[in-house]
């Protein structure tokens, strides 16, 4: 999408071009989604730089999941634009992978762990492509990365919540994407799974992939992520964790619903 370049004054008075969204993994402008008359997210802008690991945080009902779903076209947006690596969603489809919330799926579905991961390859296979040993090896490698390869033949109903989450992550890995969008990947999982997942995400970052997570646990934001987007229907703040994940921004995001002691526990930089 071409835009007329906007001139911005830098601190020392020089005229500089703002960071272009031309090839950012994810660039969102003015995205608005509403349910009937109520806005779920309103005029949200964000640019996610390549190789970053960004957390989307906010209170319940703030529109975090909605933002992801609108980016992926799962819900229709009222207005705004989304560009992925400079292209529209349908053009850049192969470069995005999505890990939805576990609860959205019927886990008694007749499918094994390995089959779920292979589903990540369906787009590449198309309708009639044949599933070869190469694909199966790829799937098993992805399961290996999340520590689940010994359960490959198991039916998914027999897994714990954390194990199910790992399988979803393996499916996303199988897509071999450049941008990974995860919806509350750490919700309701045990400590070992949390560590396994964060290790995989960090390895993705080290491969210069971009990771965006809707995250529910404020205490771990600084440990896991380098960028944060604070949202409560509208964007409150965005930027590197060091400068944007502050007590003041959190108070603004959570509308004073966050107990002062909780923020103290997070031990954030002031301001």
């Amino acid at each position: 999408m071409r835009e007329t370049p906007v001139k911005v004054a830098a601190e020392d008075g020089r005229i500089v071009k703002p960071p272009t969204s031309d090839d950012s993994p994810l660039a969102v402008r003015g995205l608005t989604v509403s349910y009937g008359d109520k806005p779920a997210i309103f005029s949200v802008d964000t640019i996610v730089p390549q190789g970053s690991m960004m957390a989307i945080v906010g209170p319940n009902g703030a529109g975090k999941s909605t933002l992801l779903k609108a980016v992926l076209g799962i819900v229709k947006s009222l207005s705004g634009t989304v560009s992925i690596f400079g292209e529209s969603l349908s053009e850049a489809q192969q470069r995005v992978a999505y890990v939805p919330q576990r609860a959205s799926v019927d886990w008694d579905f007749p499918t094994r762990v390995i089959d779920v991961v292979l589903m990540g390859l369906y787009r590449k296979l198309g309708l009639l492509g044949w599933l070869t040993n190469h694909h199966r090896k790829t799937a098993r490698a992805c399961l290996e990365r999340v520590g689940m390869v010994q359960f490959a033949e198991r039916q998914i109903v027999q897994l714990s919540g954390g194990q199910q989450q790992r399988v979803f992550l393996a499916r996303a890995l199988a897509q071999d994407a450049d941008l990974y969008l995860l919806d509350e990947p750490f919700a309701g999982v045990d400590a070992a799974t949390e560590k396994a997942i964060i290790d995989v995400l960090k390895s993705l970052k080290s491969q210069n992939k971009t990771v965006v997570c809707v995250h529910h646990d404020l205490a771990t934001v600084a440990d896991y992520f380098d960028r944060v987007l604070l949202i409560n229907v509208q964007k409150i703040a965005e930027g590197p964790v060091a400068t944007s994940f502050t007590a003041e921004n959190l108070q603004r995001t959570y509308g004073g619903r966050l107990a002062a002691t909780h923020i103290d526990d997070l031990r954030l930089p002031a301001g």
Partner: peptide, 10 residues
Amino acid sequence: RKRVGEAATD
């Protein structure tokens, strides 16, 4: 008649 809530937008 309108549905309200998350399922509304699709």
